[in-house]
């Protein structure tokens, strides 16, 4: 069953009076319940735009989105989503437990449940010992971890993560990967965007490759490697992009 669906999704930004930039072009995508779906693409390919559209932060120029059968602005749909933005920035005067409480309240979670989940999540992301520290004293990696914790405060069915390992050291990256797999096994559908191919290769059950706002291809890694006669994901990525650029030049 598709838990996230987009149909003909497009986003055009108008810059100034005449200039238009197509950030996303006619993207139709289905993300199945229980999978880890990776959106791959170089910078400016439309990855973050897609996620912002799914979350109702920006508005599509054309097309439709359905999240658990509801549109992207639906409160009911958003209750089931956890989101980690790229380079997360939170209210830096708050401590870890305070930021979790703030977001928890926005989900109407009872205070006692927030308190329980806070302790659990801070331990999960390894920030329990830094619980009294204001976020302004956090390192980039710590911000990424607290971001992950805030995205889990509502125990979401869908986790949307934009570049979740940016700023993490190799050990942090591995811990995050392991955590994502664990969360997926517990029943969460995960949609992540990344330009770290190795990360995607290790955790994703299906991938989509974006380039210049176009969805080039989508499928399982093995299926796509076969289709593009590629040796690995890096090779597949390059071939998919080259194929698109060559077709466009013609």
């Amino acid at each position: 069953m598709a838990i996230i669906e987009t149909r003909g999704l497009s986003k055009v930004y108008t810059l100034g009076k005449k200039r238009q930039v197509v950030a996303l072009n006619d993207v139709t995508l289905n993300i199945q319940e229980g999978e880890i779906f990776g959106i791959l693409g170089p910078n400016g390919s439309g990855k973050t735009t897609s996620l912002k559209l799914l979350l109702g932060i920006i508005f599509p120029t054309a097309g439709e989105i359905a999240i658990m059968g509801e549109n992207q602005f639906s409160i009911a749909a958003k209750k089931n989503i956890g989101f980690l933005p790229e380079n997360p920035y939170y209210y830096d005067y708050l401590t870890g437990p305070e930021i979790l409480k703030f977001y928890g309240k926005l989900f109407d979670i009872p205070s006692s449940t927030i308190a329980d989940r806070t302790e659990e999540l801070l331990n999960l992301v390894g920030l329990y010992n830094a619980r009294n520290l204001a976020l302004k004293h956090y390192s980039k990696g710590m911000l990424e971890r607290i971001g992950l914790a805030t995205s889990l405060i509502n125990d979401p069915k869908i986790l949307i993560l934009d570049e979740p390992t940016t700023g993490l050291d190799p050990i942090g990256c591995k811990e995050t990967r392991d955590l994502l797999i664990k969360l997926n096994k517990s029943g969460k559908t995960i949609l992540l965007s990344s330009h770290f191919l190795s990360e995607v290769e290790r955790v994703c059950t299906r991938i989509a490759i974006f380039h210049r706002g176009y969805l080039l291809t989508t499928g399982t890694l093995t299926g796509l490697l076969e289709e593009y006669q590629a040796e690995n994901l890096e090779d597949l990525f390059v071939k998919a992009i080259e194929k698109f650029d060559t077709a466009e030049q013609k």
Binding site: G56, I57, I75, A76, K78, P85, Y103, L106
Partner: peptide, 11 residues
């Protein structure tokens, strides 16, 4: 950019 996580919540 604190608006992104905020608007992604059910508000």
């Amino acid at each position: 950019r604190t608006i992104y996580p905020l608007l992604s919540k059910p508000i």
